[in-house]
Design a protein around this nucleic acid. Structure first.
Lengths: 234, 234
DNA sequence: AAACTCAAATTGTGATCACAAAGCGAATTT
DNA sequence: AAATTCGCTTTGTGATCACAATTTGAGTTT
C-alpha cells in the first residue's frame, strides 16, 4: 500500500520568502548536484523530488528543464531524467573547455579591473589560504569559486559567466568524490600569479595563469581520482 | 470582451507525431527567435504564446525555462520574459566567446577527423558556395551552420556543442537584421583554410582559421550593422 | 496639464486531476 | 528452470482552476 518510499533526501537550502517554488526547487536541486548528493545513473522521478522538496510536481518539472538545459541533468529518450556519469573523456573535455573559456573571460574582464577590485581578489585569496591551512576544504572550495566569479564579473557584460557556471556544475559533483580519492591536496594555486598579471595589466600572463590554475588544480585532482577509480574497477 | 487580441504570430515548424507539446513549443519558439520573428524588448506572455502555439500554458512555461537557461530569453525581476536587446558590448563579447570556444572545439575534434569526414565538409562548403552564388542566403546560412556543427560533432563527447548552440541562438536574431543593413555580403569565408588545416592535421592553423572565419564573417557583418543602426539613431 | 488613486483586467504561479505510456511482478507457459 | 504474458502500479505529460501580484487605464485631484 505504502508507496515505494525510497524518498530521496535532498540537502536543505535557505528559502527566502519571496522566491517562487520553482526557483526554490531549482536551487535545492542545483545545490544537491553540486555537492554530489545525487548519484549518477539513478533515475529521478518528478513526484519523488516534489515530495522531497515539499512542492507540487509542476515547479519541479520547470527546475528540471532548467538543469537539463545547463547540461547538469540528462534527459533520456525514455523521458527519464538522471545525473550524467563522468568518464575520462568527458572530464578532459570539460576541463579543456573551462580553461579556454575562463582564460578568455579573464582577459575580457581585465580592462574593467580597478585596483580596488584587485585588492578584493587579493583578500579573497588570503582567506582561501587560511581556510586551507585550517583544513576547512568546504570554505576553501567556496572561496575559490568566489575568486573566479569575482574575476569574471568585473566585465559589465558577463555573457561567459552562465557558461562557466554550467561547466562548474558539470564538474562539481565529480570533483567532490575526486577529493576523497586524492591522497594529498594540491595546495598550489596560481592566484598569486593571477593577481600579479592583473596588476601589471598583462593580458597574456593573465590568461596563462588562469589556465594553469584550472589545469593544475581541477585537472590534476580529477585525473588522479579517475586513475584510482578506474584502477579499483580493474 | 475579446481579449487584447495582439496574438503574436509565430512561424510554423513541422511537428512529428511523437514529440511532446513542451518540445514542440520549444522548437517553435527557438526557431522564431533564430529568425528574429520576435522583436527584443517586448514582453512575452505565457498565455499569449500558448494560444499562438496551440497548447496549454504548462508546456510553454517549460519551454520558456529552457530558453532562459540558454540565455536566449531574459527573465526580469518582474518575472516578465523578453528577448534580450543587442548592444555593441554584448555583441563583441558574444563574438569573442564564440571564436574562443569554436576554435577550441575544432582543435579537440581534429584527432577524430577522418578523411571521409573531411570530404563531407568539403562537399558542404561547395554547396555553400553555390547557394551563395545563387543568391539563396537562407540556404547559405543554414549550410554554414551545418558546416560548423559537423566540424565539432566529430568529437565523440561534444560538451562544447550546447554552448556553441547557445551562442548562435543569442547572435542569430541580431545577425538576421544585420544582414539587412549590410550593403554587400562578405563572400569571403575561411572554409578552404579550415579544410586545408584539417588535411594537414595542423591544430594551430585550424584554430586560427576557425577564429578568422567567425571574426571576419559574423564579426564584420555585425559591426557594420551596428555602426549603421547607431548612426541612424544619432 | 501633470501627478495621483483606485478598481478592473491581465499575468505568473502552483496545485490538482485525468490520461497514456512505460515499468514491474507474479503467475503462466514452453 | 527460463522465457513470456498479463495485470497493476508508477511515471511523465498536459489541461484546468484558483490565487496573488502586477499591470493598466480611467477618473480624480493638485
Amino acid at each position: 500500500m505504502a508507496p515505494k518510499a525510497e524518498i530521496q533526501s535532498l540537502p536543505e537550502v535557505p528559502r527566502p520568502l519571496d522566491v517562487t517554488s520553482q526557483e526554490y526547487a531549482y536551487r535545492r536541486l542545483r545545490h544537491s548536484l553540486m555537492i554530489g548528493a545525487i548519484d549518477p545513473g539513478r533515475a529521478l522521478t518528478i513526484r519523488g523530488l516534489a515530495e522531497a522538496i515539499g512542492v507540487s510536481p509542476t515547479p519541479v518539472r520547470e527546475a528540471l528543464r532548467r538543469l537539463s538545459s545547463e547540461n547538469a541533468l540528462l534527459v533520456l529518450e525514455n523521458r527519464r531524467i538522471m545525473v550524467p556519469e563522468m568518464t575520462t573523456q568527458r572530464f578532459e573535455e570539460l576541463v579543456a573547455l573551462r580553461c579556454c573559456i575562463e582564460a578568455q573571460a579573464a582577459e575580457r574582464a581585465l580592462p574593467y579591473m580597478s585596483e580596488v577590485k584587485i585588492d578584493e581578489l587579493e583578500m579573497i585569496d588570503a582567506r582561501i589560504d587560511s581556510a586551507f591551512e585550517a583544513g576547512d576544504l568546504e570554505a576553501s572550495t567556496l572561496l575559490n569559486h568566489r575568486f573566479h566569479t569575482e574575476l569574471h564579473a568585473a566585465n559589465p557584460v558577463p555573457v561567459a559567466l552562465p557558461m562557466i557556471e554550467s561547466l562548474r556544475l558539470q564538474l562539481g559533483p565529480f570533483l567532490r568524490v575526486a577529493a576523497r580519492y586524492a591522497q594529498e591536496y594540491y595546495t598550489v594555486d596560481r592566484h598569486k600569479e593571477i593577481i600579479a598579471a592583473l596588476r601589471k595589466r598583462d593580458a597574456i600572463a593573465l590568461a596563462m595563469a588562469v589556465e594553469s590554475d584550472i589545469r593544475d588544480g581541477v585537472g590534476r585532482l580529477g585525473r588522479n581520482a579517475l586513475r584510482r577509480i578506474l584502477g579499483e574497477a580493474a
